[in-house]
């Protein structure tokens, strides 16, 4: 597993994908948080970094799909899939190696945003007057959400040997799980089941954790989502044996 993890991270770095993703993520967030008028923290006057946590899930739909789209598609297309699967590695260790590599890149994209937290912390009046619980909860939620996205992305990558198809499927699935259930829940026909439908979506649990209340049910939801997609990936991965 660690050999795959190492190789994936090296290939992310050498193909500049990792760098581009991190830079684009930081530039987009930086613009929205500090420059653009409507979402600007400085003008808003409140000591929080909520715009970051509203925006990041949307940006990640694109960026994480871009990170994961090649992980299996490329191996399948170039035939190196056969090299990997005829080495003494279990299917799951290959999948986990790739999964953790993707997750680590995403976490490295999130880490620099701690500077925003520090800035707002310093700008607070009095200094350090901000809702720490909510912010750390939001960070945790963001990491769990990206972990879910990476699992979805890996699944999209294993179903096709075409990176573009994988990218689009991944974006669709991430978007679907993030916000569709919210909209569906607001439909009149789902009046009686609206809570359950909203509960199925990522954003409901993400919002919950963002409040700074770590509810085990939300954690279990995210872990199940990750588990589900990794398991589906494993099934497709082994489908060569059917």
């Amino acid at each position: 597993m660690f050999s795959i993890l190492k190789k994936e991270i090296r290939s992310f770095l050498s193909s500049l994908i990792a760098i581009i993703v991190i830079v684009v993520f930081l530039i987009a967030n930086g613009l929205f948080l500090w420059v653009f008028k409507e979402t600007n923290i400085l003008d808003a006057g409140y000591a929080n970094i909520d715009p970051l946590f509203d925006l990041a899930p949307i940006i990640f739909i694109f960026l994480i799909s871009a990170i994961t789209m090649r992980s299996f598609s490329e191996e399948k297309k170039s035939g190196t899939f056969e090299i990997l699967t005829t080495k003494p590695l279990t299917d799951m260790s290959i999948i986990m190696g790739k999964y953790l590599a993707g997750l680590i890149i995403v976490i490295f994209a999130i880490l620099p945003t701690l500077i925003y937290y520090y800035t707002v912390y310093k700008l607070g009046l009095p200094e350090g007057n901000l809702d720490n619980g909510a912010i750390w909860g939001s960070y945790m939620g963001l990491v769990l959400l990206s972990a879910g996205y990476v699992a979805i992305g890996l699944f999209s990558s294993i179903i096709t040997d075409n990176q573009i198809v994988s990218f689009i499927v991944s974006m669709f699935l991430c978007f679907f799980f993030y916000s569709t259930f919210d909209y569906l829940g607001s439909f009149a026909i789902f009046k009686n089941t609206d809570f359950f439908i909203e509960w199925m979506g990522i954003s409901y649990h993400y919002r919950n954790i963002s409040k700074g209340v770590i509810d085990s049910r939300d954690i279990v939801y995210f872990l199940s989502l990750i588990g589900l997609f990794l398991w589906l990936t494993k099934i497709i991965f082994s489908s060569r044996k059917w």
Binding site: S11, S14, S15, S78, G79, T80, F81, E82, I83, T86
Partner: peptide
Amino acid sequence: YLPEHNPLYTD
């Protein structure tokens, strides 16, 4: 094992 067409990581 050397598979047919010798797939390699070209990068």
